[in-house]
């Protein structure tokens, strides 16, 4: 792996060139032990040219290069995740977030790291003291997201363009649409409902995740606005972008449940000969 993982450090500049040559003195920000703040850390390092470390061995494994290249991206994003929270004033927590994302990108090289994942991972670290617990919860969450073929198919059938508006909500599972506290409420609720659903109904196709209904309820809420103002994809994205941070979680849940009931009714009706 890499010696930086678990060291309490966060990498914010590339460790390696695209052809696998290690870079000398990569910009390592923020050691958990020191209480230098991040911007001072950045200023202390002055680097005019990218110096390739000729003495170090060149890495040839493409996957490893790919992984090393994501490490600084993770670092850049960790410094921009929920930074208004007191929790992250403790630098150790920042490096926890970095570690978990780095390790996840290592074990799941197909997914690697994608912007938005830090938003998903952050609540795990806030809620679970133990770094290992937080990691496995995050891993489970990712599996649920990535390996949800039903959800994926559904988005596919919505078509490329339509996929986009839901994209962000699914991507960050509403983290950006609602406040931190509300998003925890929402996730909790989402999980509960999916459990209930698995136990009961939905027929051969398996359950449709409740989050689909959540998006649907948001769309319904914005229906009038969309019909009146959206004349192109850009309008659509713009309107839904405005949902940012001011969605009422409880209201959205109630809306989603209603739609879900309606959907079940339709499914049942369709089944009847």
């Amino acid at each position: 792996m890499d010696s930086h993982v678990g060291s309490g450090k966060i990498i914010t500049a590339p460790l390696i060139t695209e052809d696998g040559r290690p870079i000398k003195d990569p910009l390592v920000l923020l050691e958990a032990a020191s209480d230098k703040n991040t911007s001072e850390g950045a200023q202390a390092t002055n680097r005019n040219v990218i110096e390739v470390d000729e003495s170090a061995e060149r890495i040839t494994d493409k996957q490893i290069i790919e992984w090393k290249l994501t490490l600084h991206q993770i670092g850049l994003d960790v410094l921009r995740t929920d930074r208004t929270m007191v929790f992250y004033e403790n630098k150790e927590n920042l490096s926890k977030l970095w570690d978990i994302l780095a390790v996840y990108a290592w074990i799941d090289k197909d997914v690697g790291y994608c912007q938005g994942m830090s938003d998903l991972c952050s609540p795990m670290i806030v809620l679970l003291n133990d770094e290992a617990d937080a990691f496995w919860c995050f891993e489970k969450l990712m599996r649920r997201l990535v390996l949800d073929p039903k959800l994926h198919d559904h988005l596919e059938t919505l078509g490329g363009g339509d996929y986009l508006f839901a994209f962000r909500m699914f991507m960050v599972l509403f983290r950006r649409e609602v406040s931190f506290g509300d998003s925890l409420y929402l996730w909790e609720w989402d999980k509960e409902k999916d459990k209930d659903k698995n136990a009961s109904e939905d027929g051969e196709d398996g359950p449709v995740p409740i989050s689909v209904f959540m998006v649907a309820s948001v769309l319904k809420e914005k229906r009038e606005k969309l019909l009146q103002e959206a004349r192109g994809l850009d309008d659509l994205i713009r309107i839904l972008n405005d949902v940012n941070g001011n969605l009422d979680a409880k209201k959205a849940c109630a809306g989603a449940l209603k739609l879900h009931k309606k959907y079940l009714k339709k499914v049942q009706q369709a089944k009847k000969p």
Binding site: T81, T84, D119, V172, D234, R238
Partner: peptide
């Protein structure tokens, strides 16, 4: 200074 990571894209006018 605590601005968030942009996911996908955002729009402002």
């Amino acid at each position: 200074p605590t601005s968030k990571v942009t996911v996908g894209a955002s729009f402002l006018s």
